[in-house]
Design a protein around this nucleic acid. Structure first.
Lengths: 208, 208
DNA sequence: GGCCTCTCTAAGCAACCGCTCACCTTCGGA
DNA sequence: TCCGAAGGTGAGCGGTTGCTTAGAGAGGCC
C-alpha cells in the first residue's frame, strides 16, 4: 500500500508536483468538475468557484481551459503508466507479473476513478498535438501488457491464440473500471483488483 | 446476419420506427454529432445543419435537445437488450448461449459504435427521470447475462467463484468495445465478437 | 520610503448557446 | 376555390461562455 506519493491526512495527494498552491487547487477542482459533468459541460467559472477563486484567477496559472485538461491527462497517464511498468518490470513468473499488473492498474482506475474518467473519456476534447502526445503514452501501456503476455507465451505458461487482441481486451477491461466503479458500491478497489487479476489469468490460459 | 431491421442499400436502418422522415433525419444527424463531439459540445445548429434543415426546424419535431438524447438512448438500449435476450433465450448449452450472447452483443457495439457510444457515455446528460428509465434497461441487460452464467454454474459447466463480479466484468468488456472500436482498424465486428466469445468462455472456466 | 513582481479581483466584451416567434409554403379535403 | 393543418424559414431574444483588461493589495529588496 506504500507509494512514493505524498499523503495529507491519509488521502493520496497525486498532484504534489504541481505548484504553486493555487495552481494545484485549480487543477484538483478541474478534475472533480470534469469527472462529474464532462469537459464541455464544465465552465471556467465553476472550476474557479470550486477552488475558492474568481473566474479570472484561472488564467493567471493556465492559458486556456484546454491546457488544464491537457495537464491532467498527461500527469494522469504518466501515473497509470508508472503503476503498470512497476508491475511489468518486477521479478517473478509471467503469471505473477501479469496478475500484479492487472491488480495495481485496476486499483488505480478504481481508487482514482475521477482522474481516470477524465483521462480516458475526454481525450477527444484535446487538440491534435496534445492528443497525439497522449496517444503515444497509451501505446506504451499497451506495449507493457503485451510484453508480459508474450513472455508467458514464450515460456509456455500461457495459451493465447491472439496476443494483440487479448492485450487489447485486458486493457479495455481494466480501463472500463473507471466508468462503472462507485465508491459507495459493494466492492473496494482492492477487491476489484483481485477479481480482475483472476479473470485475466483465465483469459490467457495460465497454467496452475 | 439477418435481422428484422429494414435495410436501405445494404446499410442497416435502425431508426425505421421514427417518423416522419424529417424527424428521423434529425435523429440520425444527432447520433453522428453526439458520437463525434459529445452531447454538450454539439449544438442544435450543428444537428439541424447535418440534416439539411434550419435550426428552428429541430423544435418542430423535438421539444428540447435533451429529448433527442433521451429518444436515442431508449431506442439504442432496447435494440441492444433485444440482441442480448435473443441469444440468452435461445436453445443450447449455457456455453453456447453465453458465446452467442457475447458474440452478438459485441457485434452490435462494434457495428453500431456511434449509437453505442452515445448510449453508454452520455447517460449523465439526461435528467433524473430519463436516467432512471435507462438505468432500469441496463439492469435487465445485467440480469440476462447473469442468468446464463448461473445456468452454467448450476449445470456444472462453468467454474465461477463470483457470479455478480464476473457478470459485471463480462458486460464491461463488451460495452467498452464501443469506446475503442475503429471502422478503419484491423478487425471486423464479427472478428472481435468471435475473439471475445472465446475470452469470455475462458473467464467462466467453461469445460471443453 | 520607493519600487518591482506576483497574485488576485471586478467588470465586461464579443461570440455563441438553446430556444421562440412571426410569417411563408405546400397540400389534401369539402 | 377556399380553408386549415403541417412542416418549414429568417431573424432574433435573453442568457451564458471563454477569455481580457485595468487596477488593487501583499510582500521582498534596495
Amino acid at each position: 500500500m506504500s507509494t512514493a506519493e505524498e499523503t495529507v491526512g491519509g488521502e493520496p495527494q497525486p498532484w504534489g508536483e504541481v505548484t504553486p498552491d493555487a495552481a494545484r487547487r485549480l487543477l484538483v477542482a478541474a478534475v472533480e468538475a470534469f469527472a462529474e459533468r464532462g469537459y464541455h459541460a464544465t465552465t471556467t467559472r465553476d472550476i474557479a468557484g470550486r477552488a475558492g477563486m474568481s473566474p479570472a484567477a484561472l488564467y493567471i496559472h493556465y492559458k486556456t481551459k484546454e491546457e488544464l485538461l491537457h495537464r491532467i491527462s498527461r500527469i494522469g497517464h504518466e501515473k497509470a503508466l508508472d503503476v503498470l511498468r512497476t508491475a511489468a518490470d518486477s521479478e517473478g513468473t509471467p503469471a505473477e507479473r501479469l496478475a500484479e499488473a492487472v491488480r495495481s492498474f485496476v486499483r488505480w482506475h478504481a481508487g482514482q476513478h475521477t482522474v481516470a474518467r477524465v483521462v480516458q473519456y475526454e481525450l477527444d476534447a484535446l487538440g491534435p498535438d496534445a492528443r497525439a502526445e497522449i496517444v503515444e503514452l497509451r501505446r506504451r501501456n499497451d506495449a507493457a501488457v503485451r510484453g508480459i503476455i508474450e513472455d508467458g507465451v514464450a515460456a509456455g505458461d500461457f495459451d493465447v491464440p491472439d496476443v494483440r487482441g487479448t492485450t487489447l481486451a485486458v486493457l479495455s477491461l481494466c480501463i472500463d473500471v473507471a466508468r462503472w466503479f462507485n465508491v459507495n458500491g459493494p466492492r473496494t478497489p482492492d477487491e476489484v483488483g483481485a477479481l480482475y487479476a483472476d479473470l485475466v489469468l483465465r483469459m490467457v490460459g495460465a497454467k496452475g
